[in-house]
Design a binder for these strands. Structure first.
Length: 258
DNA sequence: ATGGCTGAGCTACTCAGA
């Protein structure tokens, strides 16, 4: 089974690119973030034509997450945590892989910049609530996949110039510690697990020729509960969609699991 | 090496992203 996570930076502005990606890559499930639209304007019909069901937690203009899936996803929920600002940032569901019930958690973590504002506090609080809920969730179901745009650069090798980001909400030590805390509850950062020293990125700014210069960062992640690592066939960052015209600033990360 | 792109909502310009 191929599961893909992609911050598309507007599902409507990106629909042609996404459909082309689906046609090329044939994913079973897409975790989308930053769909930037309300449920009623989500292009479910376009995905249906390609054979996919849509499960949407939208919001006007900003944020928004969705699952797009060939098979049905059960037990869809949009209230995994109580979001203080009522932003649409998490959708969860359940699937069966090899008769194992797997909890799917699709997240779009707040950016948090600039750091001396309430935006940063919101990010910290959000992560605190999320981690607390995950800890609780592990007592119910030990098979969990968390994926999405974490807006966290886990380590120095995950950004082209870490010095520049030391006081940035994506790389501040305090934020990276939250990521470590989550991992320490029993998850693996799958890309890093299978690529111990690779410098690969999932995001490049639109401006200043960032893509051409490879000034990127790895902020989109697949976390799997440790008991699922043996089921992972591959984890790949697919840079092709970032090179297309009218691209998202993020590129898909692809998980093969059986 | 910051905000010089980009998108939404709206239809002039702000807000947001990272």
């Amino acid at each position: 089974m191929k599961i893909v996570s992609w911050n598309v930076n507007s599902v409507r502005a990106r629909i042609e690119n996404i459909l082309e990606y689906i046609n090329d890559s044939n994913p079973d499930i897409l975790f989308l973030q930053e769909i930037k639209t309300q449920n009623e304007n989500f292009p479910s019909e376009s995905f249906a034509k390609s054979g996919y069901n849509s499960y949407v937690f939208g919001q006007k203009s900003y944020n928004g997450v969705a699952f797009v899936s060939k098979s049905k996803i059960e037990n869809i929920k949009r209230d995994f945590i109580k979001d203080k600002l009522k932003q649409s940032r998490i959708i969860t569901g359940e699937i069966l892989i090899n008769k194992k019930k797997i909890k799917l958690i699709n997240i779009y973590v707040p950016n948090g910049n600039p750091v001396d504002t309430e935006k940063y506090e919101y990010k910290k609080d959000w992560l605190t609530s999320f981690i607390k809920k995950i800890k609780k969730e592990l007592t119910i179901n030990s098979n969990i996949i968390i994926s999405g745009d974490f807006n966290i650069i886990p380590e120095e090798i995950d950004v082209y110039d870490s010095k520049r980001y030391e006081d940035d909400a994506l790389y501040r030590l305090e934020i990276r510690k939250k990521f470590r805390e989550l991992i320490n509850y029993g998850f693996s950062d799958l890309f890093r697990h299978f690529n111990k020293s690779k410098h690969e990125y999932t995001f490049w700014d639109y401006f200043a020729g960032s893509w051409k210069k490879n000034y990127g960062m790895r902020i989109d992640h697949f976390l799997a509960s440790n008991n699922l690592i043996g089921n992972v066939k591959s984890i790949t960052i697919n840079k092709k969609p970032r090179s297309k015209t009218k691209p998202s600033d993020h590129t898909p990360i692809e998980l093969e699991i059986s």
